[in-house]
Amino acid sequence: MYISGVTIDLNVFKFCTSLRGLGSIMILIVLGIVGVTYYAVVLTNYGPALFLGGFDTLASLTVLILFHCLLVMLLWSYFAVVFTDPGTVPPNWKPSVDEERGEVDPLNEVELSNLQSDPSNQQIRYCRKCSQPKPPRCHHCSVCGRCVLKMDHHCVWVVNCVGALNYKYFLLFLFYTFLETTLVTISLLPHFITFFTDGEIPGTPGTLATTFLTFVLNLAFSLSLLGFLVMHILLLAANATTIEAYEKRNTPKWRYDLGRRKNFEQVFGMDKGYWFIPAYSEEDIRRMPVLQGLEYPSTLDFNVPEF
């Protein structure tokens, strides 16, 4: 970049690559927030209330059971997103369909060589950074430095890309985090209100400050996650990713929209017993190739170019 006679070396890809260094820091931040919340809800407020008897004991027991159940699902989903590869283009992968002729006809080495010399060919998607063909809905991540199958976005909170193989886990993480933060906000609301009363408030200054901080943090996360969750529910219903949202707005009929039921199953599978846990049944993996992220059924002809 050249400004007023001064040359500035600005490389956005170097900035993207530097985001990898957040790694364990972001995970520690998430665990730190969970730890503070656990201390405020369980150890400071509702744990001791179990021994008060009567309605207080019943209310505390209900809150603690819900809190721990949601916490287990939240952490399970979170680490599933963190440690699950979102999907990588297999080595030496070749398109299995010649889109120009409309029939099964894998590209040979000469055709691949011609494709590499002419990346502008819209019949077959090609990544100039990875120097390889790209499957449908695959995009290059500048942070990870590779192509990701059905890439949605790179999330710094999970230190990973969100793609074909972990998108379900990411949605469940949003869902359980929203429920958990909402539960914490509601359960700590009476304690928060007491800060603005004239009566004596039980607890040490440290525990009171922790309760106040936990309420504000969980309220903020709950409100922000609500909008984010609604956005992804709409994308899920239309079978589109965050990256594809712009393309979808400029397309009369989105090629991958097969109806809400089928769109949902392409992410969560057909086995209802696995819908709310971050895992797939072996039967779904066997009978649904779409879960592997390489091939997607479309309502349009393959002749429609994809960007």
Rank of each mutant, 00 (worst) to 15 (best):
H140Q: 00
C141F: 10
V143P: 03
C147F: 13
V148H: 08
L149H: 00
L149E: 01
K150H: 12
K150I: 15
M151Y: 04
M151V: 09
D152N: 12
D152L: 13
H153P: 00
H153T: 04
H153Q: 00
H153K: 10
H154P: 02
H154M: 08
H154D: 01
C155A: 05
C155N: 11
V156T: 11
V156I: 15
W157C: 07
W157F: 13
W157Y: 13
V158N: 08
V158E: 08
V159M: 11
V159L: 08
V159Q: 12
N160R: 14
C161T: 12
V162P: 06
V162K: 00
G163E: 05
L165V: 04
L165D: 10
L165G: 13
N166F: 12
N166E: 15
N166Y: 11
Y167L: 09
K168I: 07
K168Q: 12
K168A: 07
Y169N: 04
F170P: 06
F170M: 07
F170I: 01
L171F: 03
L172M: 05
F173L: 07
F173C: 08
F173S: 08
L174M: 13
F175H: 14
F175C: 03
F175E: 07
F175I: 09
Y176G: 03
Y176S: 09
Y176D: 02
Y176R: 05
F178E: 01
F178L: 14
L179P: 06
L179F: 09
L179W: 05
T182M: 05
T182C: 02
L183F: 10
L183G: 09
L183M: 15
V184L: 15
V184C: 08
T185R: 10
T185Y: 13
T185C: 11
I186T: 02
I186C: 14
I186L: 11
L188M: 15
L188T: 14
L189E: 14
P190F: 02
P190S: 06
P190N: 13
P190H: 03
P190A: 09
H191G: 11
F192G: 15
F192N: 15
